[in-house]
Simulated assay, not measured.
Amino acid sequence: MMAVSVGCLLPAGFLPPLPNDKLLHFGAFAVLTALAVQLAPAWQQQRYWLGGLLLAGLAIEVGQKFVPGRNFCWRDMAANAAGIASTAGAASLIRAF
């Protein structure tokens, strides 16, 4: 989570040109969700982890509002949520089989 936060909160001038920012958001939160699913084996616990990841994504987006060259973007938040939802869904399908 620390690496994702730092990468998302660096000023725009420190970053190389990004091919697709939304894909990076999706991938980062998909990986974080995969780790959270492994840390919390029971679905009741996973809900809290996944909710925490969603709130962390929101906090990062709000924090970007105060970073030079960065801004709050609902599409980034949607990419974060899609990464969380798709990985959590895939994990529950894998566990069902």
Rank of each mutant, 00 (worst) to 15 (best):
G69V: 00
Q45M: 04
A90V: 14
N80P: 03
P68K: 11
L93N: 03
A96H: 15
N80S: 05
G63K: 06
R70M: 08
Q44T: 14
L53E: 02
S92T: 13
S86G: 10
Q46I: 03
R95G: 07
G83I: 11
R47H: 01
T87D: 00
A90Y: 12
A85Y: 15
A56S: 09
G51I: 03
F66V: 13
F72L: 10
G89C: 12
G69F: 11
L93W: 15
F66H: 13
I94C: 13
R70T: 04
Q45W: 09
V62H: 02
V62N: 05
R95I: 11
T87G: 06
N80G: 05
Y48E: 04
Y48I: 06
A81V: 08
Q46H: 07
A81C: 13
A82G: 10
W43G: 09
F66R: 06
C73G: 10
I94K: 06
L54M: 12
Q45V: 11
A59H: 06
W49R: 12
D76S: 05
A42Y: 07
L54T: 14
K65E: 10
F72M: 05
K65M: 12
A88I: 12
K65H: 12
R70K: 09
I60W: 01
L55R: 01
I60T: 03
G52I: 01
F66L: 07
W74R: 11
W74K: 07
G57D: 01
V62Q: 08
L53K: 05
I84H: 06
Y48K: 07
L50G: 00
V67F: 10
A81N: 09
Q45R: 13
A90F: 14
R75Q: 14
A81Y: 05
W49C: 12
G57P: 00
A42D: 14
R75H: 14
S92N: 11
A56Y: 15
V62I: 15
I60S: 01
V67P: 01
I84V: 13
L58A: 14
K65V: 10
A81E: 02
L93R: 11
K65F: 01
S86A: 14
V67S: 08
P68E: 11
R75S: 14
V67E: 09
L50M: 10
A88P: 00
V62E: 00
S92E: 15
W74H: 09
G83K: 05
G69K: 04
D76M: 02
A88D: 00
L55Q: 07
R70N: 07
Q44E: 12
A59W: 03
G51R: 06
R75A: 14
N80W: 01
A90M: 03
I94F: 07
A79K: 00
P68H: 09
L93G: 04
W49V: 11
P68F: 00
K65T: 14
A96W: 14
W49P: 04
L58D: 07
A90N: 01
G89T: 11
P68T: 04
W74L: 15
L58R: 01
W49S: 04
A59M: 13
I94Q: 12
A82C: 08
A79L: 11
Y48D: 07
V62D: 02
A56G: 06
